[in-house]
Every structure is written in structure tokens, then in C-alpha cells.
Design a binder for these strands. Structure first.
Length: 588
RNA sequence: CGGGGCGUAGCGCAGCUUGGUAGCGCGCCUGCUUUGGGAGCAGGAUGUCGCAGGUUCAAAUCCUGCCGCCCCGACCA
């Protein structure tokens, strides 16, 4: 394409409302424009990159045996009521009604629609397994959209859904997708890592997030430096300590202490001159409307997701003042397990504590020398805390690192959550009706593009890896007013085009500096510089955007050299992971 | 939802305290010169100052309400 004919508005100024580098560069490079909060238009350059990602995704999904469909974005409320999510999905689900007052929503995801499709048309085990996917616009009414297309409300997503006859089949489907995802992100040229993720109420190990490593990432995770264990911080396991039996001899006399206006662990620790590790925090949660006390050592933090999963709650929030008052008989800040009127669950960190300090369930009082078994009871102990810096790998006891990442993909075994509520069943060999086992698999397309920029940029702009580059080559004639320069550049352009190579011909009558800056900003991997000086000896320059390396090539060789460079760049990402293969090919 | 900030030309911003003709840089248009890392000179175009109301002889500026956008938080015994 001739630059002079392109819609490619680049900008020198950093947009004032863009915080992260990918957002800034996508705007400056003329890839996206914001229409309104969390809703973006893709311009030609940006959309080309989107299509590159989509194409890689398509190829790998097809290779893994999935079939592409295209489902509606507008979905009837009835279907969501049937699955139960009309009530539970919350405000992220954008709801509206038509002229007949019928209720609809914009699809934030498509489990309902796909399950409806499959239940109507798949009747027998002979038609299973099936894996259907689509690449489609989703709408989620995010509380706070930010970081450009990284966390936005309207976004492109590849979502796949597998339907299997039994557990073994579902596992195989999951493994296939897991492998396909490794291939996809490898081919995109990303440094990523699959990490164990929270799988909500389904439980089990069947949820992995694919995280692109980036400091600006919104997700925290831990990575073991010895074994392959990597997990989202939400999910990361804290090892279970060995139970050390204490005897009553060790227990000191329970003491009530007047602690006026001392509420936080910090204040309490100061006031009583004890360490936070000698205090037991008592948090009152509201689990589906019922209070529940969670005990944890004062220097640890509760992981709400673990609590939610442990309790099997649909909704979990910290209790409000009223509920705390009802449950403990005291205002916020003085809760304790002794004589509390709620369920009491404790984190493992509390298991071996003796003579600890805790709230007295009485305003301005705390208790010292509390002991479980004598002064209070604990229903059970569980892993409910956030993993901290001093923790070791739960698998191999190696050291763990805390890193940040951007979630670009998520594979998830759904089980029968939707097939049950929506009655997606089939007849097995014995004529028995059975519920299908489902899996779902998502990739954020736009987010993958943004994540790629987060990993690949420098002071001058984007540095595209070849597989995602909107164009592979840009030809920059230094001065288009010099006839022989323009002619030589034009010939290279035509030759490259004839070979099907994706090329921009910067034929603008601009000064060389302007064209170089733009070429760098939009990140085209290869640049051919055609200038008077080198042309005299029949040469042109080939500059590599990433390495900055420049080499001279004779005019007649430049095209084949470019072709070689591109082919190498494209091949590098082709991965070889297959379903059933062992360790994922992560390139952290 | 809570807190903070911002809304003035396509982009980045000044002006507002102390009311009185709408400003700067970049970009854009025309011409000439220039042409290997965001050129120089000369000339030019572009604004319901977010919206609505109020105060005033007079409002970008002061007051009220609304809208939009951005950031932080929504983590606690």
C-alpha cells in the first residue's frame, strides 16, 4: 500500500488520557481511537494486527479440531434466566429491551447460546465430542474500563466450547485446547506462561490462564524457580503446616484487656507490644446473606476467592457494620472467635497458634491468651490466605517469585454447570440419557495485541514481531523528488507486491526524518531505505527495526533477502506442542 | 459505589485567582527555499471555551445543576 493513500494518522504527542505504553502507542501509531469510555474503533493499521491474531487463532483452533461458528451478540433474557445467570451476572451484563418490552442482553460470553444450539441439535453420543468456536465482539459493562483495549467494555474475543460424553473426553478436549493455546501464543511471538487459575465453584485443577509477562499487567502471579508450578495469586496455594499438638499445660490464663479505640492489627500490636503474628484477625464475611467468621494470623491476608470457594458461596463480601454488630455484639474492630454466634473457619496459619490475642466481641476490649479448644471452637482449618513473599512453592518447596502478567487466554473445564441447567443431554450406547460435559476456552484478541506491544516497544515506538506485524516491510525513499530514487523504490515495491509480501511504500513527499520516525512508531520489522548515495553503487539499505542493524544489498538481491527474513520470522513462532504433550512450551 | 482531577482548535496545553476583543506549540492549507532522523521563511484557515441555568452593562473566568473523561480506592478487625 502507498503511504500517501493510507488512513494512518500518527501522532507525536502522548495522549493525555493514556496511562500504559501499549495504549499510548496504539493511539500514536494510528491503530485505535476511542469512541467513548471502554469502546474503541480500530483503524486500518490496528485492524490488520487484529486480523493477524485472529488468523493464527483460526489456524490453530481448526488444527485442534474445533469448528468455527458465529453466534448472536444480542441474546434473549429467557436463556439467561434458564441458566440462572440473569440474576447472578450482575451489572456487567448490559440489559435492555426491544419495542415489545422483551428483555435482552449483550453477550458478555456465550455459554447459554452455544449450549442452546447444541442441546437442540446434538442428540446422541455418536455426535460427540464437538468443539465449536467463534471470534466475536463481546460486551461487558466493566466498572472501570482502563488501559485502552486492555480492559475495555466492547472487545473481540475468541471463545470455544467443547462438549463431551464423559469426563475422560472432556479432559482430552481440555488438553487439546491447552496445547492449541500454547501454539497460538508462541506463534504470536509472546513471552507467556500458563498458570493455574481459580476455577470458581467447579474446583479441581482444570483452569489455566495464559499470562503474557508484563510489568504493567493487572494480574499478580507466583512462579516457582525450580519446578513448573505457576499460579495466579488468587489461586496460589499456601502449603498446609504440620499440626503441632499443644497441651493444656502450655495454655496461659485467658485475660480480657481494655483496649480503647484500638481496632487495627497495627494499633493492637503497638498497644499490647506483641507482634502481628501473635494476633488472630477475625473477619466477618457475608456469605449469601449469612455471617461467617474467618480467622487468620495477624500478619497474613485473607484470600477472598479461597474463602468463597471453600464456603461454596455465590456471593461473598465483607460484612457491613450492622451484620458485624449482630454477629459479635460489638462494633467493627473487636471481633473474635470466643463466644461468637457464627460459623468459624480458620486459615492454616492459625492451626498451631497458642495464647494468641483476638477481639473480645465487646467494644474497646481484646482477649489475651486465647486457645482453640478451650476458649473457642473452629469448625475447620483450610487454606484461605494470600501467598506471601516468605512462602515456598507448594509443590517442590523451591523459592517463588512474584511476577505480573496480562491474562490473554483462559481455558476452563465447565463440567455440567450449563449443560445441566440448560438440559444439554444425549443418549449413550445403552439408550441412557446423560448430561454433556463442557469446557470453555477464551482468548482476548485485542488484549493479545496490546500485550504484544507491552512486550515489544522501545523509545521510538512499537517493535512488531513478524507474525503480528501489520506489514512486514516499509520502503522509505529518502527523497521522492529524486527521479532515480523514486524509480528504484517503486520497482522494489512492485516486486515485493508481486510476491505477495505485505509492504508499505512511503511515497510521501516528506523529509526523511519524518518518514523514519513514522516507520519506527508503527513498528514495521523491516525497512528498505532507498537513497541517492547508495544507489550510485547499486545498493539499498535494509534496516531491522528490532536490532537496529543495517546492511547494504544490491538492488537485484534485496527482494529475496527480504523474503528470507520474513520467512525466518514467521517460522520462529511455529510451535510443536500437541495434545498430550508434556510441559507447555513457555518462553519466560 | 467512595475519593481526587480534568473538560478551551485535530493533538498537547496556557488564560480563570482579580469578569472586559480567544491564545501558544505541534498538526492542517498556500507559496518559496530545503531534503538521510519529526526543516526554514512568509502568508492563511480552524473554537457553540462540555451542556443548561443564574449573577452582571459584560462570563472561558463567579455561582448552581447536569453530562463526559481520566486516576486512585472499593483491603479488613
Amino acid at each position: 500500500m502507498r503511504y500517501s493513500e493510507m488512513f494512518l494518522p500518527t501522532g507525536r504527542e502522548v495522549p493525555s488520557d493514556a496511562e500504559v505504553i501499549s495504549h499510548q502507542l496504539m493511539i500514536r501509531a494510528g491503530m485505535i481511537r476511542k469512541l467513548t469510555s471502554g469502546i474503541y474503533s480500530y483503524l486500518p493499521l490496528g485492524y490488520r494486527v487484529i486480523r493477524k491474531v485472529e488468523q493464527i487463532v483460526r489456524e490453530e483452533m481448526n488444527k485442534a479440531g474445533a469448528q468455527e461458528v458465529f453466534l448472536p451478540m444480542v441474546q434473549p433474557a429467557e436463556l439467561w434466566q434458564e441458566s440462572g445467570r440473569w440474576e447472578y451476572y450482575g451489572k456487567e451484563l448490559l440489559r435492555f429491551h426491544d419495542r415489545h418490552e422483551r428483555q435482552y442482553c449483550l453477550g458478555p460470553t456465550h455459554e447459554e447460546v452455544i449450549t442452546d444450539l447444541v442441546r437442540n441439535d446434538i442428540k446422541t453420543y455418536r455426535q460427540l465430542p464437538r468443539n465449536l468456536y467463534q471470534i466475536q465482539t463481546k460486551f461487558r459493562d466493566e466498572v472501570r474500563p482502563r488501559f485502552g483495549v486492555m480492559r475495555c467494555r466492547e472487545f473481540g474475543m475468541k471463545d470455544a466450547y467443547s462438549f463431551d460424553a464423559d469426563e475422560a473426553g472432556a479432559e482430552a478436549s481440555y488438553e487439546k485446547m491447552f496445547a492449541a493455546y500454547n501454539n497460538i501464543f508462541n506463534r504470536c511471538g509472546l513471552k507467556f506462561r500458563p498458570v493455574e487459575a481459580d476455577s470458581g465453584s467447579i474446583g479441581g485443577k482444570y483452569s489455566h490462564e495464559f499470562m503474557v509477562m508484563a510489568e504493567s499487567g493487572e494480574d499478580a502471579m507466583i512462579v516457582c524457580d525450580k519446578c513448573s508450578y505457576a499460579a495466579n495469586l488468587e489461586k496460589a496455594e499456601a502449603g498446609r503446616p504440620k499440626k503441632v499438638d499443644s497441651t493444656e499445660k502450655d495454655w496461659l490464663i485467658l485475660e480480657s484487656v481494655h483496649t480503647p479505640n484500638v481496632r487495627t492489627i497495627e494499633e493492637l500490636s503497638d498497644f499490647l507490644q506483641v507482634g502481628p503474628q501473635d494476633i488472630v484477625k477475625t473477619l466477618i464475611f457475608n456469605a449469601d446473606g449469612k455471617p461467617c467468621a474467618i480467622l487468620i494470623r495477624g500478619d497474613q491476608e485473607v484470600n477472598e476467592i479461597k474463602v468463597k470457594n471453600y464456603l461454596g458461596a455465590n456471593e461473598l463480601t465483607l460484612a457491613d457494620d450492622e451484620m458485624i454488630m449482630q454477629a459479635t455484639g460489638a462494633p467493627r474492630g473487636f471481633a473474635g472467635a470466643v463466644k461468637i454466634k457464627t460459623r468459624v473457619i480458620a486459615d492454616y496459619s492459625v492451626m498451631n497458634m497458642i495464647n494468641f490475642v483476638t477481639g473480645a466481641n465487646k467494644e474497646d476490649y481484646h482477649l489475651k491468651n486465647v486457645n482453640i479448644g478451650r476458649d473457642c471452637e473452629v469448625e475447620s482449618f483450610a487454606d484461605l490466605r494470600v501467598v506471601g513473599k516468605n512462602d515456598k512453592c507448594p509443590r517442590c518447596s523451591g523459592n517463588i517469585q512474584f511476577v505480573r502478567g496480562i491474562e490473554v487466554g483462559h481455558v476452563f473445564k465447565l463440567g455440567t454447570k450449563y449443560s445441566k441447567s440448560l438440559k444439554a443431554s444425549y443418549l449413550d450406547k445403552d439408550g441412557q440419557e446423560k448430561i454433556m460435559i463442557m469446557g470453555c476456552y477464551g482468548i482476548g484478541i485485542g488484549r493479545t495485541v496490546a500485550a504484544c506491544i507491552e512486550q515489544n516497544n522501545d523509545a521510538n515506538g512499537i517493535v512488531w514481531p513478524i507474525p503480528l506485524a501489520p506489514y512486514h516491510v516499509i520502503i522509505t525513499p529518502v527523497n521522492v523528488n529524486e527521479g532515480d530514487v523514486l524509480k528504484a523504490a517503486d520497482k522494489i515495491y512492485n516486486d515485493l507486491q508481486a510476491m505477495g509480501i505485505e509492504v508499505i511504500f512511503d511515497d510521501r513527499d516528506e523529509r526523511a526524518g519524518v518518514k523514519f520516525k513514522d516507520a519506527d512508531l508503527i513498528g514495521i520489522p523491516l525497512r528498505v531505505i532507498v537513497g541517492q548515495k547508495n544507489l550510485i553503487s547499486g545498493n539499498v539499505e535494509l534496516k531491522n527495526r528490532k536490532s537496529g542493524e543495517t546492511k547494504l544489498y544490491p538492488l537485484e538481491k534485496i527482494v529475496s533477502e527480504i523474503k528470507k527474513n520474513i520467512d525466518e520470522g514467521l517460522e520462529q513462532g511455529i510451535a510443536t506442542t500437541h495434545a498430550g504433550g508434556k510441559t507447555p512450551c513457555s518462553r519466560i
